[in-house]
Design a protein around this nucleic acid. Structure first.
Lengths: 331, 331
DNA sequence: TCCTGGAATTGAATCGATTCAATTTGATCG
DNA sequence: CGATCAAATTGAATCGATTCAATTCCAGGA
C-alpha cells in the first residue's frame, strides 16, 4: 500500500509537501501541487486513517449507539434515520460508527471505550428517555454529543428534535377544521420524551380549539403496530365516541387503521386517522396515511452540523425542526 | 487522556510491559500484571485506536456499505440485519463502520477509500445483484469481504446466505400437505439473487409435488408492500385461480394480505399466505403471518466469522443457513 | 551583481501504541 | 556459593502521517 513517502518520492518532493497538498493546498506552488496530485492518482494513494488520527488527535468519526436487547428499536423509522445520518456524514467527510449495546447498563462503558480510545470524536444519542443517564455521564466526562430528542428539563446540551408538539397541534387543528370534535389519541409511554411532547401538542391543540380533554379517548401503550391495533379495538369495544384518531407513530396508526377496517369503520371515510413519522409504509397503506413527516435529510444534516460544533467546542444552539403535514387519504 | 506511558509510570514498569499485559498476558508475571491492571483501572486508560491501528496494521473494523439513493433499502429487514451485525461485531471485539453511498458508481471509489486508508479491514456486502460489479472489483484489488447473498455463478468468494430455495420448497410442501394445488407466487425482479433462488425453490417445490408450473400465477414486481398489494389485486381481478399465495418477502405478503381482505377472501382461511424474512411486523399482522424466518443472530455471527477468516486470509467455505418455517395463522 | 524578504520547500520531532532484540531477574542445581 | 538458563522486563525502532522551525528559492530593487 502506498504511503506518503512513496508519493513524495514519485513526485520528487518531501513528504511534508505532499501533506500540505492534501491539507493546506494554498501553501504549495501550483506546478508542484499538480505533480503531487498526479503521483497520488498514479499510486492510488489514500492517507492512512490511523496515522492521521494519531497525529491530528481526532478520528473524524461519529459514534451512534444502537440499543439492541430488550430495548431494540424495530420501528422502520430508525432505518431511515441511519440512512439520513450516513448521508449527512458523507457530506461532511465523516465516518459513522455503529455500536450496539444489549445491556442498558453497559451503555456508559461502551461510550467510554469508544471515546477514550479515540475511536470516535463524539456521539449522537437516540431513543432518549425523559431521564436519561447517558446525558449526565457524557457531560461530566466532557464527551461531545448531540441528542436526537430532548429530556425532561431542557438541559444545557446540544440537541436536535422534531417539534412533536407543533406537529400534533397542527394535526388537531386540521381535524377540527374538518369538523371533528372527538379525537382519540394513541401514544407510547410518556417516559419517552417524544411521546411526551407529542401528547402535549395534542392537549394544546384541543385547548386551542376549545375542545375538552377526555382521558377515556387516550390510550398509552407500546409503540408497535400490534399495540396500536389493540388500543383502537379497545376504544371501539368500549364504545368511546370518536370520529378521528391521532397516533403518535405511524406504526401505531397502521395498527389502528386495521382495527377500524375490521370493525367496519372505514378509516379515511368514517374515521379520520393521522400518524407521525412518515415511514415508507405510510404512503402504501390503505388508505394512504395522512401523517406528520419527520424530514429525515434535514434532521441528519442538523444532527451532524450540531455534532461538529459540539466536537469543536463551539456553542451550538438546539434545533427544533417542524414536521410537515402530509395530507393523504386517511384524513 | 492517559497514555500507555502514564500507565507504565504509575505501575512502575515500562510501556512494553503494559502492552504485553493487554495483548499477551501470558508473558507477564501475575503480580506485575495485577499492578498494571490496577493502574489501568485507576487512570481509566483505553488504548488509542489510531496508534494501535498504525502499528498493528489493522483496524478491527468491519465496513458495511448501505446504498442510499434510488437503491435505498427500506425493508425493515435491514434494520434487523444491522442490529444483528452490530451484536456479532461486539461479540468479536470489532467495530462496525457504516458508509452510505447515493450513487452506485461511487460504490467502488468508496470501497477503495475506506480500505486503502485502512479505515476498515474488509467489507460485508449486502443487496447483491446477480451480476454485481463490486465482487470482481474487490477480488481484483485483493480486498477481503463476505457477501450476504450470492451472485449468478457461485464464484469462488466467501459468502453467507439463507437458503431461500430450501425455504420455498418447504413452504410449497407445507401448503401441498394442507391440500393446496394452486399456489400463486409474488417475487421481486429476479436480478436480485435472493429473489432468483427463492423462485427456484418455489418451482422445485411444485415439481416435487407433481404440480404444474403456471406462469399466470407468478407476479414479478417491486419488493414493497404496495407492490404486493397491487400484484395480489391483479391476480384476483384476472380471476387467476389460487388457494394459496407465497410472497418472496414479508412486506409483499403483507400487501397481498390486505388485497385479499379487501376482496373478502380472508387470508388464513380462504387463502393461505406465506411470507419470507419474519420481520417484526409479521407476527403482528392479521392474521399473524406464517413465514420463513431468517435467523438473524445466526446470520450476523456467520457473517462476522467468515469476514474474520477472509481478513486473516484463511479460506472460508460459504455458509448456507436454512430458514425456519414459523407457522402462524395465515397458513 | 548582490542583497533582501516573502514564498516554497524540507528535515526532524511527534502522536501512542507494538514488538524485536537485548538485558535483567531469579530459581535451580552442582 | 556461583554458574546456568528460562522467565520477565525493558530500550529502542517502527508504523504513517502532521507541523514547527529552519532552510532554500527566486523575483525585484539597489
Amino acid at each position: 500500500m502506498a504511503t506518503i513517502r512513496d508519493v513524495a518520492r514519485r513526485a520528487g518532493v518531501s513528504p511534508a509537501t505532499v501533506s500540505y497538498v492534501l491539507n493546506n493546498p494554498g501553501l504549495v506552488r501550483p506546478e508542484t501541487r499538480e505533480r503531487v496530485l498526479q503521483a497520488i492518482a498514479e499510486l492510488g494513494y489514500h492517507p492512512h486513517a490511523g496515522a492521521r488520527q494519531l497525529k491530528r488527535r481526532r478520528a473524524d468519526t461519529v459514534g451512534l449507539i444502537l440499543p439492541t436487547g430488550e430495548r431494540r428499536l424495530s420501528d422502520p423509522f430508525f432505518l431511515e434515520l441511519i440512512h439520513a445520518l450516513g448521508d449527512a456524514c458523507a457530506a461532511h467527510q465523516l465516518d459513522l460508527l455503529i455500536a450496539t449495546c444489549r445491556d442498558p447498563a453497559a451503555d456508559l462503558r461502551l461510550i467510554d471505550r469508544l471515546y477514550k480510545g479515540r475511536r470516535v470524536d463524539g456521539f449522537i444519542l437516540i431513543d432518549l428517555q425523559r431521564q436519561d443517564p447517558r446525558i449526565p455521564h457524557l457531560q461530566a466526562a466532557g464527551i461531545p454529543f448531540v441528542a436526537f430528542g430532548r429530556i425532561e428539563e431542557d438541559g444545557a446540551f446540544p440537541w436536535v428534535d422534531v417539534d412533536g408538539a407543533a406537529g400534533m397541534r397542527e394535526a388537531v387543528a386540521y381535524l377540527v377544521r374538518k369538523g371533528h370534535r372527538h379525537i382519540a389519541y394513541l401514544s407510547p409511554p410518556l417516559a419517552l420524551t417524544f411521546a411526551h411532547h407529542r401528547f402535549q401538542g395534542y392537549c394544546a391543540g384541543l385547548a386551542e380549539a376549545g375542545l375538552p380533554f377526555d382521558e377515556t379517548r387516550v390510550r398509552i401503550t407500546r409503540p408497535t403496530m400490534e399495540a396500536g391495533y389493540e388500543a383502537a379495538r379497545a376504544l371501539l369495544a368500549e364504545n368511546v365516541p370518536f370520529t378521528a384518531l391521532i397516533a403518535a407513530t405511524d406504526l401505531m396508526a397502521l395498527g389502528a387503521m386495521r382495527a377500524l377496517h375490521e370493525a367496519g369503520r372505514a378509516p379515511g371515510q368514517e374515521i379520520a386517522v393521522i400518524g407521525f413519522d412518515d415511514i415508507p409504509m405510510a404512503a402504501q397503506a390503505h388508505p394512504p396515511l395522512t401523517t406528520l413527516r419527520q424530514p429525515m435529510d434535514q434532521i441528519g444534516e442538523a444532527l451532524i452540523r450540531t455534532w461538529l460544533a459540539a466536537v469543536r467546542g463551539e456553542p451550538a444552539s438546539p434545533i427544533l425542526i417542524p414536521p410537515i403535514l402530509i395530507r393523504r387519504e386517511s384524513a
